[in-house]
């Protein structure tokens, strides 16, 4: 495998009943790139993410992350090897504070168990301090530091998306999967998000992104993959893809 590839997906297939959500999906993601996955509703984008993050087993095919097969890896082990994600429907922990949400993101980077925690040993206190400060720095990164002690569920929707992003970043991923991060955001917030994503990519984190906001996709992504009915119909730079007749057809219907 080439050295600058971080994720390679080979003929990944997943069917629900007779319907293919993913059909022989094959693509590569280069290290440090921002790659967008686009396609009409029901094209299989979220299924792709679920299969990649161990939430659903594929029927066929495999995914290799940095020379390691991740196809059937349990979801909780992925954080440890450097994969994190956000969700299309925000999945924060609403009853915990904003800061605590991000602190959970540091779970796999720390290791304090039941006994140490119950006895509050000095090593545990030290680790807690590290978790707290580290989590706080991620909050600062997305601009939520002043809301650190608010219940996460009380944040407005756009802020919840940013919180989810901060939580995913806190696990210090090499590959970050973002499922429609801009949906439900207003123009200003989307702009802000684009800036943050660029900053994240600048730190060497590879981003795979499902997104409907074409403006955002065109602005920030290096490569675009287009899915339709579970199949890859186009792949290339944003400009190439934009003018591809098959893409236009998938989005607008064919010209008669």
């Amino acid at each position: 495998m080439e050295n600058d590839v971080i994720l390679s997906v080979e003929s990944l297939t997943k069917a629900f009943g007779g319907l293919y959500a993913l059909k022989d999906v094959t693509f590569l993601v280069k290290k440090g790139a921002i790659k967008a996955v686009i396609g009409p509703n029901g094209a299989g984008k979220t299924t792709l993410f679920d299969v990649l993050t161990g939430l659903q087993p594929p029927d066929r095919g495999r995914a290799v992350f940095l020379d390691r097969e991740i196809t059937c890896m349990p979801a909780h082990q992925l954080a440890g090897i450097g994969i994190s994600r956000t969700f299309q429907t925000v999945r924060i922990f609403p009853g915990m504070t904003v800061l605590e949400n991000v602190m959970v993101g540091l779970h796999h980077r720390t290791g304090c168990g039941f006994l140490k925690a119950a006895l509050k040993l000095p090593s545990e206190r030290k680790e807690e301090k590290f978790i707290r400060e580290e989590a706080f720095s991620y909050l600062e990164m997305v601009g939520l530091e002043l809301m650190a002690h608010f219940p996460a569920g009380s944040l407005p929707f756009g802020r919840q998306r940013l919180l989810e992003l901060a939580r995913a970043l806190a696990s210090r991923p090499k590959l970050l999967l973002l499922d429609e991060p801009a949906s439900g955001l207003n123009t200003y917030e989307t702009e802000e998000l684009g800036e943050i994503l660029r900053e994240i990519a600048g730190q060497g984190i590879t981003i795979l992104l499902v997104e409907h906001d074409m403006g955002l996709v065109m602005r920030i992504s290096h490569e675009v993959l287009v899915l339709d009915y579970g199949e890859v119909i186009a792949e290339g730079t944003p400009l190439e893809v934009k003018d591809d007749p098959r893409v236009i057809e998938a989005y607008l219907g064919s010209e008669i």
Partner: peptide, 10 residues
């Protein structure tokens, strides 16, 4: 509060 999210967080 969210089993899926917790699993993704490791």
């Amino acid at each position: 509060q969210s089993e899926v999210a917790a699993r993704i967080m490791g």
